[in-house]
Design a protein around this nucleic acid. Structure first.
Length: 193
DNA sequence: CCCCAGGATTGCT
DNA sequence: AGCAATCATGGG
């Protein structure tokens, strides 16, 4: 199975090319994007991030110092803006506590899972793409991908995560690229699935 | 007009 | 444990 997962990765990379995730200028911007993209088209998130940046509001201090009303206005295009303004602040507080933390990955993951508004996928996206921790990010597309290739089946998020983590070389760049490629694969094939 | 997007929480059974 | 309702904008 290890070989098959790696072979599929090579095929995806050949088909779609290097995705270069996560697109952001700073690690904090990755975290912000991870919150804003929850159940939302990335295009709408880009608009919100551009507005935050234009308002000079894309740093932890600026976000925490901005009233929700204004924050909501800036991120409006990303949808669920009331919740997300609140979640942005909660996550930012955790960010300030953990951004230079030397906690092991399991403990760091639990720290993030304790934040209201941060579920497993969001936590793992932050861990992998902002902290560079070796965690495989699972989403609905990952499950479709496994099902389509008859790789693995479960309902539990962590079963899928463990499946990838234990059947691939333990490499952060690989995990980053693989998840991005699966998303790209799903978009290309969404009509046929 | 309906459906979906790089989800998470809450409440009910 | 599983499932539906809820949150909300912008595009197809």
């Amino acid at each position: 199975m290890r070989k098959k997962l790696k072979d599929l990765y090579i095929e995806l990379l050949a088909s779609y090319g290097h995705q270069g995730w996560w697109p952001a200028q700073t690690r904090y911007e990755v975290m912000v994007g991870a919150i804003l993209t929850q159940n939302t088209n990335w295009k709408n998130v880009e608009k919100a991030i551009a507005k935050l940046k234009a308002a000079d509001c894309l740093t932890p201090g600026a976000v925490l110092g901005t009233r929700n009303e204004k924050l909501e206005r800036l991120i409006r295009s990303s949808g669920f803006y009331k919740q997300k303004a609140e979640r942005l602040k909660s996550a930012t507080r955790k960010w300030l506590q953990t951004r230079n933390s030397r906690l092991d990955t399991i403990r760091l993951r639990n720290e993030w899972l304790s934040v209201k508004g941060v579920g497993k996928e969001t936590a793992d996206s932050i861990l992998l793409y902002a902290f560079g921790r070796p965690v495989f990010v699972v989403d609905a597309y990952t499950k479709l991908f496994c099902d389509h290739h008859c790789l693995f089946e479960s309902r539990e998020y962590d079963d899928y995560r463990t499946f990838f983590e234990s059947n691939l070389p333990y490499s952060v760049p690989l995990f980053k690229e693989y998840h991005a490629l699966i998303v790209e694969w799903a978009k290309e094939n969404k009509k046929r699935l």
